[in-house]
């Protein structure tokens, strides 16, 4: 009898624990800081496998990168509103990435209490589309990124604004490109959905697949940023 009561109490405790979302924010914060803690160690070991010979351009980029890092450090980590022309953006830290490979979700440290609403566009450095707010909790939000499989978005390609359908995933691709339109590797791909600001860059065409038996072309895509290095995002408030 006693064992049964203990079992029931434990089962209820586990259910409450699983249903409650308070710990998720704490976990995200802890993960973020743990990753920061590990960063120097990984950088130290990776320095052994990297080539020591670097071109002047790389060295310039590295210096510029260091400067940018210093500037970022000087800024507060809390979400803050920034006005750029007519648009207002809320900058936020990317705390946590979805733990499994099948979803391209991230959590950011800005939620409904900071004015974030479901559906808002999320960008990187203001001009690259990262995704949209899938869920706005009080203190954090979940962002569905362009790396989430199954996410489809109307886009345009290059100066000729060729229409295509962007399909998200770990390796995003473009589909439904009509056969008579000329596209080539290196052309810019940008958002053209009514749900997002027009013209946000998503990436560049990597390779075009022109199947003779199909009415449409397909293309693979190089995204504008590698997913693994993302640490900051901006929510487009208006």
């Amino acid at each position: 009898m006693k064992a049964r009561i203990v079992f029931i109490v434990l089962a209820v405790a586990v259910l409450v624990f699983l249903a409650d979302q308070t710990l998720v924010a704490v976990k995200s914060y802890s993960s973020h800081n743990f990753a920061l803690l590990l960063e120097p160690a990984f950088a130290f070991f990776s320095s052994f496998v990297k080539s020591t010979e670097e071109s002047p351009e790389i060295l310039d980029l590295r210096r510029e990168n260091e400067l940018l890092k210093a500037q970022i450090l000087a800024l507060e980590n809390f979400p803050r509103l920034e006005q750029n022309g007519g648009s207002v953006r809320l900058t936020a830290k990317i705390y946590s990435t979805y733990p499994f490979n099948n979803r391209g979700l991230v959590s950011i440290n800005a939620g409904a209490s900071s004015g974030v609403v479901q559906g808002m566009a999320v960008t990187i450095q203001d001009y690259f589309l990262l995704g949209y707010v899938a869920e706005a909790k009080d203190r954090y939000s979940l962002v569905r990124t362009v790396f989430d499989s199954g996410w489809e978005l109307p886009v345009k390609i290059g100066d000729d604004a060729v229409d295509a359908l962007f399909v998200g995933g770990r390796e995003p691709k473009l589909t439904l490109i009509t056969e008579d339109k000329e596209i080539e590797a290196g052309q810019v791909v940008y958002s053209a959905s009514k749900d997002f600001p027009y013209g946000l860059k998503i990436g560049e065409i990597k390779e075009v697949f022109d199947g003779q038996n199909f009415a449409f072309k397909e293309a693979s895509l190089n995204t504008a940023y590698p997913f693994s290095v993302l640490s900051d995002a901006a929510v487009v408030i208006r």
Partner: peptide, 10 residues
């Protein structure tokens, strides 16, 4: 569990 929420081992 903590590391899995980051891209450290990506």
């Amino acid at each position: 569990g903590l590391i899995q929420n980051t891209d450290t081992l990506n």
